[in-house]
Design a binder for these strands. Structure first.
Lengths: 219, 219
DNA sequence: GTCATATCATGACCGCTGGTCATTATGAGG
DNA sequence: CCTCATAATGACCAGCGGTCATGATATGAC
């Protein structure tokens, strides 16, 4: 009884790893469950003893990547210049994405509500939990920046919208394979650098009281 | 000969319209070619006299939407405050997206290089042509802003990266169905407003020199 | 009106997919 | 060694996008 359990778990890891390899080699959309199973030396039916569906595999891989990234971010110490730390984190995130385009594609795919509602509740909650942790990370950093006097205190949510949107955009860009049909070749390093600047500028300058509008109930 | 030709073109329009209706009602991923054909009162095989593939239908609908948007943008006059015009355009774009989420989903789907390379060259070129026109629109606006002294002259491409990324992000958000699992309900109007501010702030402040980021407080 | 011809519409058919489940193989316990 | 619970298997299914031989229809000459 013990041995079988061990073997079962081992197979699950093997399947996830194999699936990711296949996705990286041939594109996650094209790879079939049968191919993954064959590559792992396992019958197709067995895959469904471990995962409810192919999409469930997508979700687990996306979750693992997201968790690994978060773990990495949390090791970065917040110095005396939280906004610089934020820039550092942003660039770190972009580089992690660049190194793992397939995982980024999967993440984008799995974030869609339409996808999530098909998903088993357990995994859906895992996604939500991660979202919360990322929001927390951002808010902590923003608070630190306020405390250090780098920015004025203002509602954090609109700023998070901006940053989140920017991240979505970069993910879409990376998932799309960079600047495929762009006018001229684009260096991803330069792109990352400028986008990071754009974000920091947005945080500095966005939406305090510029002109019209009805928010600003800060504090 | 004349009648048949007319009827053929009419069918093509009918098919596109019907397909869009079906996509809006049941989700563009789930709808099958047979369903679209049935809804249009046409046999499945006939669909393939008009379109090389289901993806080709996606592409044509995305193109039509993109063209319609561009046409709309071009009617907005550039006043004495180009950056305000840009904000206006940005908000117009966001509202168009909100009113046409399915078209946004299709656009995102069709922009992916992997998708485009499967596409018939004619349609691919249409996408590239549109891209060029959008870039042009942005550059013209930026030039005008420089001429009016609203911003300093600086390389436009990095700024376009930022704006493009932001748009990708908003499209992803809208395609995802808004803020599905967000902490608390988010008003899209407020979201649009703040994101537009974020973009304008980014344009003002982003990336003038190497790593110097603080600048460009609102006027 | 009628027939020959060119053109188009049709739906049975194909290969392939994700997913199922009755059957078979295998380890654990007496 | 035998029994039994449990896990692995792959033939099988329904449904998909896409094809193509066949049948229907408009056209133009007479």
């Amino acid at each position: 009884m013990r041995y079988q359990n061990e073997a079962f778990r081992h197979r699950e890891r093997l399947l996830l790893d194999t699936a990711l390899d296949c996705f990286k080699r041939d594109g996650w959309e094209k790879v079939t469950v049968a191919e993954v199973a064959a590559a792992a030396g396992i019958a197709k039916g067995t895959v469904y003893k471990h995962f409810l569906s192919k999409e469930s595999i997508y979700a687990q891989l996306a979750l693992e990547f997201s968790r690994a990234c978060l773990r990495r971010y949390l090791t970065v110490p917040v110095g005396d210049h939280p906004l610089e730390t934020m820039r550092e984190l942003i660039l770190l995130a972009f580089n992690l994405m660049r190194e793992h385009p397939v995982e980024v594609q999967l993440s984008l795919h799995c974030e869609r509500p339409e996808f999530q509602q098909r998903l088993e509740p357990k995994l859906r909650e895992a996604f939500q939990s991660l979202d919360r942790q990322y929001t927390q990370l951002f808010n902590d950093l923003l608070d630190a920046a306020v405390k250090q006097g780098e920015i004025e205190r203002k509602p954090s949510e609109p700023l998070y919208w901006g940053v989140d949107t920017m991240f979505q955009g970069v993910m879409a860009r990376i998932a799309a394979g960079g600047f495929g049909e762009w006018r001229e070749p684009v260096d991803l390093d330069a792109y990352f650098h400028h986008v990071a600047n754009f974000i920091i500028a947005g945080i500095h300058g966005a939406s305090p009281a510029s002109d019209d509008d009805t928010e600003a109930q800060s504090c």
